[in-house]
Design a protein around this nucleic acid. Structure first.
Length: 437
RNA sequence: GCCCCCAUCGUCUAGUCUGGUCUAGGACACAGGCCUUUCAAGCCUGGUACAUGGGUUCGAAUCCCGUUGGGGGCACCA
């Protein structure tokens, strides 16, 4: 799923568990022997030790430390046992032997040196009692063996980085270049995480965002081209060319869906009609409006609708609500909606009847011929064209707000349009009758 | 509690390193207007910000220190 999401965003990679490569195996469970061997190496070098403290004892120690207002950390109970005090075959973990004096410096390419007092660092567990490594051990070994040169992470990882720097030192390896990027916050100012407001890339897709828009927007969260550059909409190629780690802003950024929505709209408007059509079809299918594959007759209707909705979409999903009346039956409009302001029910009825007459005599059922005919008709009736259009809109869609009228009528077809206008006529007739009694 | 990071409009940011051109620029959102068959889109106009106190300096959004505020971390999770 992560692979699919990354691919959707247009990211690719040179090697990995899905495509193989020279640095495999890539799955942790297939590398357990490496971790065990390396952990043993650290014990031999005096950089690690075995520990068989029970979880209960550790909890108790931590509780006591917290009660005393100290930073909870391992109390070193097993730190100075003789190497053979705990046999390799009895249950135990392996801990990092953090120096008890001095400092560890994390060089962050965005922030410079961050200095940590070693006495504050915990004797981190490296290998768990089930034989699996913790993240710290695994990532250091894997990154080194796989030739990783740069590590970019959220700044919530800063405080655990000295442990890994120490591991590099213990192994005698060169640490990678670290850059800790600011966190992305939710609207409430809290870290966006799995359990707090964050959504997966797959969800962006489901919500009707275009990958190009998400890619562009994400690049702009915490980064900007600077130097007076005021462009915000960039192609992928421009971003790849312009993006510079050094220009990442250090303050955490609030994730703004409002701006993402705007940007998605920009990208939707920039799409060709054909491309937008292809993007939209799955959402129409998903809504149950059209079958898939799309029959030629329906495709023609879709092709009419695409330009009408293009500049009205913020999300691709918006097309469902915008065009539902084209594909499904509508509820009968209320008389109130069919009677514009400053118009009597009788006038409305007269207008509807005139519309039906006018449309019925159209030779060709297309948007271009409807408009002039109806405008002329409105002039003859001495009413504003807008009023006429509003009535037609409500009668045919049961919406006060809809995409441009004549295109919709064309898409709807002569038969359905006239049927709905006939229903509107009925509504007005019975409304007038009720009022009269 | 302890440690770490950060601080310009409501939000994302330019400007900070290399003090003066910043009465602080842009974008989103918001308000008003234009256009208009509704809604959008587009165009125009508007309001809103250098957290605070002290230094350094002829001069500070820009450099230094304190304070305040926000965020993060403190697992046999990643």
């Amino acid at each position: 799923m992560i692979f699919d999401s990354l691919r959707w965003l247009g990211m690719d990679w040179d090697e990995g568990p899905d495509i193989g490569g020279p640095c495999g195996p890539y799955t942790q469970s297939e590398r357990l022997d490496i971790y065990r061997q390396k952990a043993a190496e650290l014990i031999d070098k005096g950089w690690a030790y075995r520990c068989n403290c029970t979880p209960e004892r550790l909890d108790q120690v931590r509780d006591e430390q917290r009660a005393r207002g100290e930073t909870p950390k391992y109390d070193g109970h097993c730190r100075n046992l003789t190497p053979d005090a705990i046999a390799p075959d009895e249950p135990h973990v392996i801990r990092l032997k953090v120096p008890q004096e001095g400092t560890t410096i994390v060089h962050d390419s965005l922030r410079g040196d961050i200095v940590f007092d070693n006495t504050l660092l915990d004797d981190q567990i490296l290998l768990k009692s089930d034989g699996f490594p913790t993240y710290h051990l695994a990532v250091v070994i894997d990154d080194h063996l796989m030739g990783i040169t740069h590590v970019l992470r959220g700044d919530d990882w800063i405080s655990s980085t000295p442990k890994r720097v120490l591991l590099y030192r213990a192994f005698g390896w060169q640490p990678p270049v670290y850059a800790h990027v600011p966190l992305v916050l939710g609207a409430d100012g809290k870290k966006l995480g799995k359990r707090h407001g964050a959504i997966s890339i797959a969800e962006f897709r489901r919500m009707g965002y275009l990958p190009e828009a998400v890619f562009n927007f994400l690049a702009l969260v915490g980064w900007s081209p600077g130097e007076g550059e005021e462009q915000e909409v960039f192609t992928r190629e421009e971003l790849i060319q312009k993006f510079d780690i050094e220009r990442i802003n250090l303050a955490p950024a609030v994730f703004s869906y409002e701006k993402l929505d705007w940007m998605n709209g920009v990208y939707i408007r920039n799409l060709s009609r054909e491309a937008l059509l292809q993007h939209l079809i799955p959402f129409w299918v998903e809504a149950g409006f059209i079958p898939y594959p799309v029959p030629a007759g329906i495709l023609r209707v879709l092709e009419i609708m695409v330009p009408l909705v293009q500049e009205r979409l913020k999300h691709l999903t918006d097309v469902v609500e915008l065009t539902d009346f084209i594909f499904t039956d509508i509820a009968t409009p209320s008389p109130e909606d069919l009677i514009p302001k400053k118009t009597t029910p009788e006038q409305s009825l007269e207008i509807v009847r005139a519309i039906v007459k006018e449309l019925a005599k159209l030779v060709s059922w297309d948007a271009e011929s409807m408009e002039p005919a109806l405008r002329e008709m409105a002039a003859e009736l001495n009413v504003k064209a807008g009023q006429v259009f509003n009535i037609i809109r409500v009668a045919t869609s049961n919406k006060r707000v809809a995409p441009p009228l004549f295109g919709c009528l064309e898409a709807l077809g002569r038969e359905t349009t006239l049927k709905r206008l006939g229903q509107a006529e009925d509504v007005l007739v019975s409304h007038i009758a009720q009022q009269g009694s």
